[in-house]
Write a protein that binds this DNA or RNA. Structure first.
Lengths: 204, 204
DNA sequence: TACCGATGCCTAATCGCCCTAGGCAACTGA
DNA sequence: TCAGTTGCCTAGGGCGATTAGGCATCGGTA
């Protein structure tokens, strides 16, 4: 009987692709097994179970994501960097909805040494934002607040868009560009308008 | 044998409470049945199935949510209204994570006449934001873009917070206040800084 | 009060998926 | 060539979703 030649990596990659196609919730051990023409039980030699599989997809995605965002901002700064970062962020989420969704849930289970590389992906992503913001000259705790705001807006927009939350006929692309422009404006204004003291000012 | 006296409403409410306790994903027909001391099959007289149950929870939540947000902004305007709205939004999401999650997924299945009231909840929520923004004097398409941006940021923040996405020691409350302040600043600036033409200006 | 129809809840049964245990065959390297 | 490793399989238990069909319980009516 021919062997399918599975490995944890192959299985993870197949699961990730499946997630992008049919949604993360539809990713099932059985479905992945079917994809390889193999019985469900066979996957358990490579993956601990469903939770482990999902965690691996999350780590894979985080790595890919960071690998994509890094080059996007490399060599740019200020507004250019922000726009490139934001667009790369949204593009990835739209091209890989399942992977993106997988990334969102916290990875509880350690998955071995590969976890280091993968978890590094998530961290790397955050670091990238911090680095990007350096150009806007923010110190702590402003930088943390700004990163959180930026992450919230990017994630929120992408998440609402993915779920079909924008029904108005108005072009979503334009709304996105405006949103990114707004983020740039905000980051530029931050020190004057949003720093600790004058948090109620209208210095616009 | 005593009857449990179930109704679609009771079942929905129990499912919503369960979702808030253990997470939306853990809401199962069996679990809700157990809660009533009843067999799973019995629920199918009141609810079409799991998808229907989730849809009902979503509609219930949307209604409650709008009922909460309305009073929060009533009688306020400008920054006050925005802060009250945002806080009510976040408070609801934190107090009712399961209901909030249920609201996020689109309701595919019509659930009968009750759907009208419920779906009205979602619409009402959006209308509220539009109304609130009226104070900032935005016309179309600025208003739509601004609503989308505001929704994105609020949802994104709340979603990241719920998932434990904020790890830094820096107080999340402060970050939230800054984020809301930032939204206010943005809405105030919008016409000067973000309207169609001068989308690249730094008029801050 | 006695009856009757509606309907609430049950049993029985099927299916899909998760997961474990144990076995045999297909690869690997000596 | 052969022994050990390991990949995939069969067998089986458990749980959740869902359907079909039955009986008891309820509300209303004569």
């Amino acid at each position: 009987m021919r062997r399918a030649g599975l490995t944890a990596d192959l299985v993870t990659r197949a699961a990730a692709d499946l997630a992008d196609e049919v949604g993360l919730d539809a990713v099932t051990v059985s479905a992945v097994a079917r994809h390889f023409g193999v019985k469900d039980a066979s996957l358990y030699s490579h993956v601990r179970g469903l939770a482990d599989l999902r965690a691996r997809v999350a780590l894979l995605a985080a790595g890919e994501f960071a690998d994509l965002l890094g080059p996007a901002v490399a060599g740019r700064s200020g507004r250019d960097a922000l726009v490139a970062f934001a667009d790369a962020y949204r593009d990835y989420a739209r091209a890989h909805p399942g992977r993106y969704a997988a990334m969102q849930r916290p990875v509880d289970l350690p998955v071995g040494p590969a976890a280091v590389t993968g978890a590094g992906g998530a961290r790397r992503g955050i670091e990238l934002i911090y680095g990007m913001l350096r150009g806007y000259g923010l110190g702590e705790p402003d930088a943390t607040d700004a990163v959180r705001l930026l992450r919230s807006t990017l994630h929120g927009f992408v998440d609402l868009e993915r779920r079909g939350g924008f029904n108005d006929p108005r072009d979503v692309e334009s709304s996105w560009r405006r949103a990114v422009a707004a983020m740039h404006l905000l980051l530029s204004c931050w020190r004057e308008a949003l720093s600790e003291e004058n948090s109620s000012s209208e210095t616009c």
